[in-house]
Design a binder for these strands. Structure first.
Lengths: 256, 256
DNA sequence: TGCAATCGTGCATAAACGTGCAATACCGGG
DNA sequence: CCCGGTATTGCACGTTTATGCACGATTGCA
């Protein structure tokens, strides 16, 4: 489109600050590569920013001027940490320029946060939290599925949502799931929710389920999809080996 | 097609502003090429716009006037505090069992947080942030408008969103606004955004605009609604009295 | 200590900038 | 119709800013 997609000097400094606040640190070499300028220019940028008190200059790059994040609560931290790890593993299954369905749920929100930038991904979701997690980050296009929001699941459900979902064709989908079984497949608690997940799965090439340990032993009321619909499963590394073998035997790629 | 497709100077400045709000930056060289004028003229335009506080002049072009990150806690906090107060005032205009449209925007997010519980309100919004602010609280039903999310606005826009909005009839609507004028009414920067706000206003009985001080002196490119469409205006208490009188004269109820 | 990466400084070059000036177009009054 | 004022524009000039490279000093790590 534009003749020059060159980055303005001051704009670059702003982007550096943005990266700094997101990652907590920046590396001079990486920045030089990313913005396609010499390391000297980056050094000058960092020096200016440090002079304004906006960052702390260190050998090799810069750090946040303030302490990045206070340590979170301990108990809640552990479950969140697990979801974060599972999310990161699941995120690695996503390729460049793919269209991905992300269902509502705290685990899927963690996945959304873990998705890499600059991959030209299109994220389709019925959950405001997921949308917020990726909105505004570079290389993301976000499509929101509307409808009535169910406070229990934190996402839109209902016929209107399903109709919108049917307009989409995706490469990958990440349905939230209430229970999982190596023989019968995916189970959910709610009728409307079930139909939406089914539409989601049908519209996608591959299906990935991220299962926290509790999902592997739970049971639910509505059958959502057979185990054959599942292509990838992401679970904690301390999961029972025989259980995993049963999933592999059903043709599911298991990731730890 | 007129024979002269020459762009008027002031018109050009408006178009530059539009591009600026669309892309977050403008490059002087590109603009000169696009409008077929010398870079000197572009520089003069940018200088004028910057003098009006509508953009931030930088070497090579211009950036959005908005502060990229909070330079100091005080200023940003003060603005947040102001929005919180304005939000609370606006929230008092909402009655029991009403259906209300809430547009995207940080001020409207503050409004959503300030809405009272247990009032059987139905909130219709195109913004994930607004949805999250009220989701799960007692006495709220939330309807999400889907569509492609615009990262600059923080909400869904486009024809799909508009179609969903047209299915709704609301008591009250809170359109976000880029600029406000006691004679001409509401102004916005983006075409698609304009159409959505128009649909929103038409579908609602009353229209409330929450205007932070900067909106009252700013100017924008797209006319969104006449002043007669406005029923309530919420502004800071230190706003110029003669300005408020002009709004009251136009039949707008002003709240401080 | 030795080595490689990183840093700061000085310098040359190119791009962008501001200013002054002249040319042109538009507008209202005589 | 003419004429002076104003606004806008492009050009020339000297100035400022940003950049990359070269060189030597410094830092971190083994």
């Amino acid at each position: 489109m534009s003749v020059t997609d060159a980055t303005l000097p001051r704009e670059r400094q702003g982007l550096i600050l943005e990266r700094l606040h997101r990652d907590g640190k920046v590396v001079a070499t990486d920045l030089a590569l990313e913005f396609k300028v010499s390391e000297d220019s980056i050094r000058r940028d960092l020096r200016d920013l440090a002079a304004q008190g906006l960052c702390r200059r260190v050998y090799g790059g810069a750090l946040l001027a303030q302490t990045p994040v206070a340590p979170l609560g301990e108990r809640h931290h552990e479950r969140a940490e697990l979801k974060r790890v599972l999310g990161r593993v699941a995120a690695s299954l996503v390729g460049e320029k793919q269209i991905i369905f992300i269902d509502a749920g705290s685990t899927n929100t963690a996945l959304a946060k873990a998705l890499p930038d600059h991959r030209s991904l299109t994220v389709v979701t019925n959950a405001p939290d997921v949308a917020t997690a990726v909105l505004g980050r570079p290389g993301f296009e976000v499509i929101l599925l509307g409808g009535r929001l169910d406070p229990r699941i934190g996402g839109a459900i209902g016929s209107r949502t399903i109709r919108q979902a049917q307009d989409i064709r995706a490469d990958l989908c990440f349905p939230g799931v209430c229970a999982l079984d190596p023989v019968s497949g995916l189970w959910t608690f709610d009728e409307e929710e079930t139909v939406l997940k089914q539409a989601m799965i049908e519209a996608s090439g591959e299906t990935v389920v991220i299962a926290t340990p509790d999902k592997l032993v739970a049971s639910a009321t509505h059958h959502t999809a057979p185990i054959t619909a599942l292509t990838h499963l992401v679970v904690a590394s301390d999961t029972d080996a025989s259980m995993l073998e049963r999933y592999r035997h059903a043709g599911v790629a298991v990731h730890l």
